[in-house]
Write a protein that binds this DNA or RNA. Structure first.
Lengths: 239, 239
DNA sequence: CGATTTTTTGAACGTGCTCAATTACAGTGG
DNA sequence: CCACTGTAATTGAGCACGTTCAAAAAATCG
C-alpha cells in the first residue's frame, strides 16, 4: 500500500524498519476520489496530511478571472500536502486529475513522529523542501524557457519521478492528462500545447498518445529540455 | 542584530524567550559580503545555513546559455538557505544583490534545536514551507500573469514582507535593484521592464526611482496585481 | 572629468494567443 | 449496433505582447 511512498523516500534517505512501522501506524483512513475532484480547498482548516497511493494529482492556483496555474504534479507515493502540517491551511487547491487512492495522516500523528523519530522528521522536512525545489525549477521553466523546452523538461521530470516508484517501462510511462491540463502546467494555451506536441513528435523526441508518454531517445530529449536532474536530489544522503 | 528575523518569525508564530536565546546561541559568524557576490554556489556541500541580517539577496538559477531566473528575493530577517539543513546542497545559487550582512548557523546547531526545541523546529519547518508558498505564487505570476500584473504583484509582495521587518515608511520602501535584475525576477527583458515601469507610473500605481518603491494607492495596485496576500500566511498560528 | 553601467527610446520581428471552425473520439441510450 | 452527445484534439488566420537589435541619453563611479 505505501510501497511507492517508501520507494520514493528510500531513493534519497535511509528509512529503517522502526520508521517504516511508524509511518504505517500514522496512516489511518484510505479512500478513493474520482477524477477532477478538488481534494483540498485553499484556506480550508487542515488537521491531517494526505498521501497519494495511486493516481495523478496536482497543486493548482486559480485567479479570479478563471486563469489557472498548476504548480506541481503529484504521482503515486507523493504527499499531496505534507506542508499543511506546519501551514495548517493551504494557499492552493489540491486536485485529483485521475481517480486517486489516498490515505490520510493526522497532524497529531505527525507531531508524534517528530518527537519520537527525529530522523524521520528530517526526512519529511526534506520532502517538503524537495517540493520547493520542484517549484523553483518550474519557475525557471515558466520564466526562462520556450514552450517546447518547458514541455520537454516536464516530460523529463516525470520520467524520473515515475521511474523512482516503478511506473516507467520501456521508455514509456502513463500520463492521464488532457492537452488542456498540460497547458495549465506549462503556462501556455491548449492550442499551443497541441502544436508543441506535434513539433516534439515530428523530431521523434516525445510521443504523447493514449494517456502515455514515450521517449524514444532520452538523451536527445534531455538536451532539448536543457534538463539537469540535480534539482531532484537523487543521490542518497547519509542518515 | 537578529531583531528583523524575530519580527518575521513572530508575525506568524509564537517564539518565547528560551527559543529566542537558542537562536542567538546557534548563530556564530557574522560577516559582510559585497554587492553582486555569489554567497552560495549550487551543488556546494553545506554544513550551515545563512541568515540575512541586512541587505537584499536572491535565489537564482542559471541556464547553460546565460538565461537566468530569480526564484525568490530575500530581505533582512530571511534565512537564505534554511532548506540546506535537510538538502545539504542547493539546486540554485544565492546571490547578494546589495552589500549584505549575514550570520551563519551550523547545521549541528540546527540539529540541536530540533531535538531540544521541537516547537521552534516546527517554526523553522514552517519557514521553509513559506518559501515554497512564495515560489508557488511566483510560478503563477510567471505562468499566468501579464508583465504588468507580475510587476505590480512583486511590488505588493515586497511591501508586505518589508513591512513585517519595519522597512516600509510612508507607502515607500527601499529596493536597490537595477531594471535588469528586476527583469530576471519577472521573466521579461530589461527593455520591457522599463516600458512596464513607465506604464505603471503613468497610472500612478507605482513609482520606482532612486532605489525606492513608492505606492501612492495601495488598493489600486493590489487590484492591478490581482494580489491576495493569503499565500504569505500573515495570521498568527497557535503554539 | 572620463569610463562604465543603467535607463530610455525606436522599429522590426516572432512566439504564442485569440477566435473560430472542423475532426476525432468516448460514452450513453435507444 | 448505431445515432446522439459532449469532450478533446486538430487546423487556420489574424493579432498582440513582449523580444531583439541598435542607438542615444542619463546616471553612477572612479
Amino acid at each position: 500500500m505505501i510501497e511507492r511512498h517508501l520507494m520514493k523516500l528510500r531513493a534519497r534517505n535511509d528509512v529503517d524498519a522502526r520508521e517504516e512501522a511508524a509511518i504505517r501506524d500514522a496512516l489511518d483512513d484510505v479512500r478513493v476520489v474520482e477524477a477532477d475532484t478538488v481534494v483540498i480547498r485553499p484556506g480550508q482548516d487542515l488537521d491531517h496530511s494526505t498521501l497519494l497511493l495511486d493516481g495523478l494529482a496536482c497543486r493548482r492556483k486559480d485567479l479570479r478571472d478563471g486563469r489557472r496555474q498548476v504548480t506541481e504534479l503529484h504521482v503515486a507515493g507523493d504527499f499531496l500536502d505534507l506542508h499543511s502540517f506546519t501551514l495548517k491551511r493551504l494557499d492552493h487547491e489540491v486536485v485529483a486529475l485521475t481517480r486517486c487512492r489516498i490515505a490520510t495522516m493526522p497532524h497529531r500523528a505527525l507531531l508524534e513522529i517528530t518527537e519520537r523519530h527525529p530522523h524521520l522528521a528530517r526526512v519529511y522536512w526534506f520532502g517538503t523542501n524537495l517540493d520547493a525545489a520542484v517549484h523553483r525549477e518550474w519557475a525557471v521553466s515558466l520564466g526562462a524557457r520556450s514552450a517546447k523546452e518547458r514541455m520537454a523538461h516536464l516530460f523529463c521530470e516525470l520520467e524520473i519521478r515515475l521511474g523512482l516508484v516503478g511506473l516507467v517501462q520501456d521508455n514509456s510511462y502513463p500520463l492521464d492528462l488532457t492537452q488542456g491540463e498540460l497547458a495549465e502546467c506549462l503556462g501556455i494555451t491548449p492550442v499551443h500545447v497541441n502544436r508543441t506536441l506535434m513539433d516534439l513528435r515530428s523530431q521523434a523526441l516525445v510521443e504523447f498518445r493514449d494517456q502515455r508518454v514515450t521517449i524514444p531517445d532520452r538523451a536527445a530529449l534531455c538536451r532539448a529540455a536543457d534538463f539537469d536532474p540535480s534539482y531532484l536530489y537523487l543521490e542518497k544522503r547519509p542518515r
